[in-house]
């Protein structure tokens, strides 16, 4: 047989094969058990011919293999091209729900303080006047003690008007150092409107230790405000009054909408009032049996709804309690 001619014919057939089926047919014809080449190899008697035939077989096998890989790849490419889908078409099927906006802010605040080494204390919502007023140095006759301002269950029992009773309970239960935040529902006799609901949420913070200063308070609040409203904000602290702190301050943050230039959100002042704070009044230490000469501390109590409203600019607080999914899904 003419090996050279056979090889030429085989290579030509390989080159002509245009599908994996065709190349398989080429393989069978030139390399199959009954192919002229295989038959010739079986018959071979001399070494010289064997080497020639095997060399031709290897070349044909190489060519068939390479062409086969090429064709397979081309066919795969063709199939994949046909499988193209509209990637812009949504499929759904894994709809997640949404945490309530206040829960999201609550977790944010908790995480800020967990990072600073504070514990989170749950507190309780139905309280005694002892913890809600007496222990917090509310004088007799203070307007908050009036049933016009507060929801009472009986003369000595009420729905807490701020998260601060958890301060007193925590201090009663342990000696300093105390570093806690307490977040939850508080209650006031406010007729619901766009900026008031009779139930709302506060975050209470308390740090009592040796050497705590007013600067530690403003520094901590500055850290929190920047975490909530953006690292580029400025903070300012102004004198204020609360029965349970002395000195007392009110925290302001530069407006995140206009950055201080003046807009409707900050009522053209450039500053937004966020909430009250102060150094724990020595009367509270007296109440819980701490040594006010040895320890000092700070506390603050802010409304979470106010933070939510300021940050997200929705106009009506009552939406937070209506639970309309069209509202919830935005956050």
């Amino acid at each position: 047989m003419d090996v050279e001619a056979l090889e030429q014919a085989a290579l030509a057939a390989v080159a002509a094969a245009s599908s994996t089926d065709a190349i398989e047919a080429v393989r069978v014809e030139y390399l199959g058990r009954k192919s002229e080449l295989k038959l010739a190899l079986r018959e071979v008697r001399d070494r010289e011919t064997g080497i020639t035939l095997n060399a031709a077989r290897e070349r044909i096998e190489g060519a068939v293999g390479a062409r086969e890989a090429e064709l397979e790849r081309a066919e795969l490419d063709r199939r994949l091209a046909e499988e193209s889908v509209d990637v812009t078409l949504p499929v759904g099927g894994h709809e997640r729900g949404h945490l309530h906006l206040i829960t999201q802010i609550r977790r944010e605040v908790e995480d800020v303080f967990l990072g600073l080494g504070y514990r989170v204390v749950d507190g309780r919502e139905v309280e005694t006047t002892r913890y809600n007023f007496d222990g917090l140095n509310f004088p007799p006759g203070h307007p908050a003690r009036s049933p016009l301002a507060t929801l009472f269950l009986d003369e000595d029992t009420l729905l807490r008007t701020e998260t601060s009773p958890s301060q007193v309970r925590t201090m009663e239960a342990q000696q300093p150092p105390v570093y806690i935040v307490s977040l939850g529902r508080v209650y006031r006799r406010d007729t619901p409107d766009a900026t008031h609901t009779p139930v709302f949420h506060q975050v209470e913070g308390l740090a009592v230790d040796e050497g705590i200063t007013l600067g530690d308070l403003t520094g901590t609040l500055d850290f929190l405000l920047k975490a909530l409203f953006g690292a580029e904000r400025r903070t300012e602290f102004r004198t204020h009054y609360f029965p349970f702190t002395e000195p007392s301050i009110e925290a302001y943050v530069s407006c995140h909408v206009c950055d201080g230039a003046g807009c409707a959100v900050c009522r053209h002042s450039g500053w937004i009032e966020v909430g009250g704070a102060g150094m724990v009044d020595p009367k509270l230490y007296e109440f819980v049996g701490y040594d006010s000469e040895r320890y000092s501390g700070f506390a603050f109590g802010w409304g979470l709804e106010r933070i939510a409203m300021l940050r997200h600019e929705f106009p009506d607080l009552r939406e937070l309690w209506r639970n309309d999914l069209r509202f919830a899904r935005q956050f």
Partner: peptide
């Protein structure tokens, strides 16, 4: 008040969890 430096408590113990 507007001269008070912004500092953080100097802690001897933390228990944030």
């Amino acid at each position: 008040l507007d001269r008070v430096p912004l500092t953080m408590p100097l802690r001897r113990a933390v228990a944030g969890h």
